[in-house]
Amino acid sequence: MSDMTIGKVAQAVGVGVETIRFYERRGLIEQPLRPKSGGYRVYPDETVQRVQFIRRAQHLGFSLREIAELLSLRASHGTDAIEVRQRATAKLQDVDHKIERLRHIRRGLMALLDRCPGQGPLRCCSIIDALEHDQRLASEPAERKEPDMQTVRLTIKGMHCDGCAEIVRHVLEQQPGVKGCSVSHENGEAKVAVDTSQTSGERLAEAVQGAGYSASLVTEAG
């Protein structure tokens, strides 16, 4: 595949030209300069891969703002996979919350339909009556407690091989609120994606110490 016009990019991905232009306006893909000699703008092959990345992320429920953050992480050589996992975990929690809301809506609609006689004058319609009088049709879902997701860093001493790192990783992943972690015996460090409303960095360090390793919390200043 060679350099392409915007029309060929759109055709390769299966979207309209206006979609490509919209992504350009949002800063998700770069608009190439128009040739000085005139003619069409020419897009590199990587544009197709980038648009496909955007479309797949959208299908998983990520917003354009969140996709921009993922693209930024993707372009950064210093990014740890735990940062991507943390964002995916937050999106999964958001999806679970929406599913619970839809279940609540379904219960309400079923309650309305159960009360509706399905015939007779409109003044006897239980659905209209319930909507007009704001009747509670189903129990409200439990109030959602927002997670306080953070990346906690621990300095760990005493790890000498990948097996040690695997032990530490297993210990950390068993702690409440931990959504993922990466452990390096070479760097003597662990990065943990954790809901700090359920546990703290100090408790994570204590858990590692209980496994026979020296562990301390890395503060922002440290």
Rank of each mutant, 00 (worst) to 15 (best):
A138K: 02
A88S: 10
L60M: 14
R74D: 12
D96Q: 12
R85W: 11
L60P: 04
D129K: 10
R101F: 05
A57I: 09
E69T: 10
I82N: 07
R103G: 12
G78P: 01
R106T: 13
Q119K: 11
M110W: 06
G108T: 08
S139F: 03
I105N: 12
Q58S: 09
D114M: 10
P121Y: 09
G120F: 04
A81D: 12
V95Y: 01
L64K: 02
D96P: 00
L109P: 06
H133L: 07
S72A: 13
I99F: 00
P117A: 06
Q86Y: 02
E146P: 00
R123A: 13
G61I: 04
A75P: 01
R144P: 00
L102I: 13
R74P: 00
H104W: 15
C125L: 07
R123E: 15
V84Y: 06
L112D: 03
Q86E: 09
F62P: 02
E69R: 10
M110V: 12
R123S: 14
D114T: 13
L112Q: 12
R101Y: 09
L102V: 11
R123G: 11
G108W: 04
E146L: 06
D134V: 07
P117N: 04
S76G: 05
S139G: 12
R106K: 14
D129F: 00
L102S: 09
D80V: 11
T79V: 12
D129L: 02
Q119I: 01
K91E: 04
P141S: 01
A57G: 10
D94G: 03
Q86L: 15
L113K: 13
G78C: 07
F62D: 03
Q93A: 05
I128P: 03
P141F: 00
A88W: 05
A138T: 05
L73G: 00
S63A: 08
G108I: 04
H133P: 01
D134K: 11
Q135D: 13
E100Y: 00
L64C: 02
R74S: 13
C116F: 10
R65E: 13
R85A: 13
L73H: 03
I128N: 10
D134W: 06
P141L: 00
H104K: 04
C125M: 08
H59Y: 13
L92V: 12
D114L: 11
D94P: 00
H97C: 01
I105Q: 15
L109A: 15
A130F: 08
Q86C: 07
G61E: 05
A81C: 08
H97I: 00
D80E: 12
R65K: 10
R65M: 03
E66C: 04
A90D: 01
E143K: 05
I99A: 09
D129P: 03
T79A: 15
I127N: 04
Q58E: 14
A90L: 14
L73E: 06
V84D: 08
D114G: 09
E69H: 09
E66D: 14
R136P: 02
I99G: 02
S126V: 03
T89F: 07
